[in-house]
Design a protein around this nucleic acid. Structure first.
Length: 879
RNA sequence: GGACGAUUAGCUCAGUUGGUUAGAGCGCCUCGUUUACACCGAGGAGGUCGUAGGUUCGACUCCUACAUCGUCCACCA
């Protein structure tokens, strides 16, 4: 050990980069290079961060948890693969680059043209990918970079096309004319779950509508009305049902059909709604049920179409105020009220969504397919979770998953953006530029992996929803559609670890895609972590300036401390509040581990690995090994079941409160502990490695400079744990603590050594045997151990279980204070004894409680009665 | 409107199938440089476990209702 290398405080910045480099160069992130015979595999697909992003704290928590799991399984002898990659994040990336270009040159993507725009997007992506990959490394992630993938790389693009073609041939993908969510800013469709809702106060217009009065928030859609609907059997309107009526409007009269439909709430408003099938989902469904025609009046830019007369060309908002004016003039407006409702907006840009009729590609979620034994993809996705093939942690998310799947409608997968996987469909004699449903065309369609031969074919200009490719992630990254060795070895993956916020977006879609295309589940366990909020529980955001940047805190406190702060004190599915002081606390801990190691390594003659558990000499030796073995069992069991936090807490407690506070201190008193100290240290480093891989490796090099800690075998508990050892040692600890307490209460300075008399009864042998330890830790000069008797006058006194402790401090004894202290203590024990006595007198307790519990209470009572007696005597002696 | 979660020490959170005199870290108070560590050591104060009922010999733990906060889903003109 080099002294200068082992500085007083651990400096993470001096080691982290070189350690990571050593790991990466060792090749052990790659499962093919792992030593030993590894028959079982354990794999995780890393949820791909957006190719454009910066690492944020949400990524950090995901990386910490996944790396912990992979490192644990690697040490357990599994063939471990953690496959990293990035996602092209279609709309998000396109929007971002569009903004950048606009800011730089004032140009739009249309000015540049498709090819040039895509080139610029790709340049941008390559640059930010390098950035985020290095940030992933900073966290210590032991993922296999040789297998890294990108959703737009060649192999994955082929997987996407193959999936599309296969689903098309099975009739699962179809092109249809439907009402879609349309963002007039992005000029694209949005999936149902890409629409967000914003509470907004708007106006509700009560309008005269022929013979009816009805309420609407969108009077401009009156131009597209083709029906009026009432609740079935509503007496007020029976005479109109089934009739066609002429309604006066701002562009003259128009005809509507009156229908009955259960979608109408007879209690809301007047119980009548106007039906605009082309621009409202509910209205569209009503129109479908009653064979009502639809009339599109709003175009893809959110403007009124040519069929709107003088309103043509206005935005919907402009049109609304204009049309309201005109209607007021005609006396068609009865009243206008304020009205709170949820405005639908685009989740990417916040623009209000315009429902429009459009020709798009969909995945049919209700089609029974042969490949799934006649089930629908929806049924299959439900089944694998219900039958526990896939286990979601925490399991309460099962319910929300079921609910979401059950209510899933056909998934619109085409997007009118350029950046993404182009839809593998070609048309001839097409009018694909028009999405208007009224233009049915006779066109040839070709769906395939490559462009068809022959003239006049044009590829569909649209691209696929980014979640379509993400849905293939677990198997497309392993080589599918080729049946590769990796695919056979690592799929289904073992664990999917991600935030609960994308359970639907992503996890559900992977399940759908994998069960259909692969015929197997994508992963066995789903671990959902919560959101990281700031110390006040507020979502982190740049505008609030409450963001904790993982790179900043790694630099300041080290990657290990950052990881610990994200791994401990959290439970799956629950949000976590994180503050910098918490990270600082774990930095202190890492430093503690460093200094324990430093002490051991400096004081040991020959730092080395110890193969077998060393033989013991003292109670402390037995105790620390027993505690270590308990810890190993606990950690192994709980890491297997993803209880990271409790494991971290337990190892932390062992390290600081057991090893450092007691055993290391005792090692300064009892000699000849070289082997045990080394043995404990080497196992402790192994236990910590999945949590804090950097500092443990730095320390490990001092024990073994040839092999990396990350591929060592996970520790095994050796031998049976003797409970009596732990009980005895705990008693010794309590005696020491009690003496320290007495000293402290009486302001006896640590440098002042005093005598002690311990009346130990049946524990005399134990206390005598441990008297050296006790006297050094409690800073005693002389210690006298008796079986019984001898009341020491003018002493501080206390009782530990059945043991009486006297510290003769004649002269300095503050009798009044001491009496007071003992009286308080006496009352506390007396109350407890009374409580136990009452319990044990309760007939029903005696009848119904289990025997062991009653026995336990009886022993407790007896012990405390003895204690109470002794305190009383001590009080008497003082008086 | 429906579902879910949270509510435990000043703050951030643990608390496994009901059987401890309710725990940890940070913060706070007192004392302390005993050569691993002041990113430290020793000791201490601090909680009727959101409220009200109920089940039970026994409830922080189970049930019911309510309150506050939060999230998701559905969206009704």
């Amino acid at each position: 050990m080099q002294d200068q290398e082992f500085s007083k405080a651990y400096e993470p910045n001096n080691y982290e980069d070189s350690i990571y480099k050593a790991w990466e160069e060792s090749g052990f992130f790659n499962p093919d290079n792992l030593p030993g015979k590894r028959t079982k595999s354990f794999s995780i697909s890393m949820p791909p961060p957006n190719a454009t992003g910066n690492l944020h704290i949400g990524h950090a928590v995901m990386l910490a948890i996944q790396d912990l799991t992979i490192r644990f399984q690697r040490m357990r002898g599994q063939k471990t693969l953690w496959l990293p990659g990035t996602d092209h994040a279609a709309i998000a990336t396109q929007n971002k680059v569009e903004k950048l270009i606009k800011a730089k040159s004032g140009k739009t993507r249309h000015d540049l043209g498709r090819a040039e725009f895509l080139k610029q997007v790709n340049d941008f992506v390559i640059q930010s990918q390098t950035n985020i990959k290095n940030q992933v490394r900073k966290m210590g992630s032991s993922c296999d970079w040789t297998r890294e993938r990108y959703t737009l790389d060649e192999g994955l693009t082929k997987a996407v096309s193959t999936a599309f073609v296969e689903m098309y041939n099975d009739g699962l993908i179809y092109r249809g004319s439907r009402i879609v969510n349309w963002c007039p800013r992005c000029l694209s469709t949005l999936a149902d779950d890409e629409v967000e809702y914003k509470p907004t106060t708007e106006k509700l217009y009560w309008i005269k509508y022929g013979p009816f009065t009805l309420a609407t928030s969108r009077p401009e859609t009156k131009l597209g009305d083709t029906a009026v609907a009432v609740y079935p059997g509503d007496e007020r309107y029976q005479k109109f049902v089934g009739k066609k009526i002429m309604i006066p409007g701002v562009l003259g009269e128009f005809e509507v059909t009156v229908v009955e439909d259960k979608a109408v709430d007879p209690k809301f408003g007047t119980g009548v709604i106007k039906v605009t099938p082309a621009h409202d989902f509910t209205d569209y469904e009503i129109a479908q049920r009653h064979n009502i025609v639809l009339k599109q009046i709003i175009n893809e830019e959110g403007k009124m179409m040519a069929n709107c007369g003088k309103y043509a060309g206005l935005t919907t908002r402009e049109c609304r105020s204009k049309i309201v004016e005109d209607m007021q003039r005609m006396g068609l407006i009865e009243k206008i009220e304020d009205y709170d409702h949820n405005l639908s907006i685009c989740y990417r840009c916040g623009t209000p969504v315009e429902p429009l009729p459009s020709k798009q590609w969909f995945i049919n979620v209700n089609k029974e397919v042969k490949k799934l034994g006649g089930k629908t993809i929806k049924q299959k996705a439900l089944e694998v979770v219900k039958e526990k093939e896939i286990e979601i942690i925490p399991d309460r998310f099962n319910k929300t998953y079921y609910h979401w799947i059950e209510n899933l409608r056909d998934w619109c997968i085409s997007r009118q953006i350029w950046f993404g996987h182009r839809i593998p469909v070609w048309y001839r004699n097409t009018k694909h530029g028009t999405r208007n449903m009224e233009h049915e065309t006779s066109e040839e369609i070709y769906v395939g992996l490559e462009a068809p031969k022959g003239d006049g074919w044009q590829q569909d200009p649209d691209s696929l929803d980014t979640w379509f490719s993400s849905g293939l992630w677990t198997f497309s990254t392993l080589g599918w559609p080729e049946i590769t060795k990796d695919l056979k070895t690592f799929h289904p993956t073992s664990l999917m670890e991600t935030g609960y916020d994308i359970l639907f977006f992503w996890v559900a879609r992977m399940i759908i895609m994998s069960t259909y295309l692969m015929g197997e589940i994508p992963f066995k366990h789903v671990y959902l972590h919560g959101l990281i909020r700031d110390e006040n529980g507020v979502k982190m955001s740049k505008s609030l300036d409450n963001v904790i940047d993982p790179l900043d805190v790694i630099k300041k406190y080290g990657a290990d401390a950052t990881r610990l702060s994200l791994l401990i004190g959290t439970t799956p599915g629950n949000d976590m509040n994180l503050s910098e002081s918490k990270i600082g606390g774990y930095r202190n801990f890492v430093n503690k581990l460093w200094n324990i190691s430093r002490y051991i390594l400096i004081n040991v003659k020959n730092p080395r690995l110890i193969e077998k558990q060393p033989s013991v000499k003292t109670l402390a030796d037995q105790w620390i090994l027993a505690e270590l073995n308990l810890l190993i069992d606990f950690a192994t069991k709980n890491l297997e079941s993803y209880n990271f936090s409790v494991v971290g807490e337990k190892i932390y407690e062992f390290t600081w409160s057991k090893l450092a506070d007691w055993y290391v201190e005792i090692s300064k008193v009892e000699s000849d502990k070289e082997e045990i100290l080394l043995y404990i240290l080497q196992n402790l480093l192994k236990l910590w490695q999945p949590f804090t891989p950097f500092v443990t490796q730095v320390i490990w090099q001092n024990l073994d400079d040839k092999n990396l800690l990350m591929i060592q075998d996970w520790p095994k508990a050796s031998g049976k744990v003797d409970k009596k050892v732990i009980k005895d040692f705990d008693l010794v600890k309590e005696v020491v603590s009690t003496i320290r307490n007495l000293r402290s209460e009486s302001n006896i300075s640590p440098s002042q050594e005093i005598n002690a008399v311990i009346v130990a009864g049946s524990s005399k042998k134990l206390i005598e045997q441990e008297s050296l330890v006790i006297s050094r830790l409690a800073r005693l000069k002389k210690i006298e151990v008796l079986t019984s008797g001898k009341k020491s006058k003018a002493s501080l006194s206390a009782v530990v279980g059945k043991i009486e402790i006297y510290l003769p401090v004649a002269g300095t004894l503050d009798v009044k204070k001491e009496l007071n202290r003992l009286t308080v203590e006496e009352k506390r024990v007396r109350d407890f004894v009374a409580h136990l006595e009452a319990k044990l007198k309760n007939q029903r307790f005696l009848e119904r409680a289990p025997k062991e519990i009653i026995e336990k209470e009886k022993v407790k009572l007896a012990d405390h009665k003895v204690q109470l007696e002794k305190i009383k005597q001590q009080l008497k002696t003082l008086k």
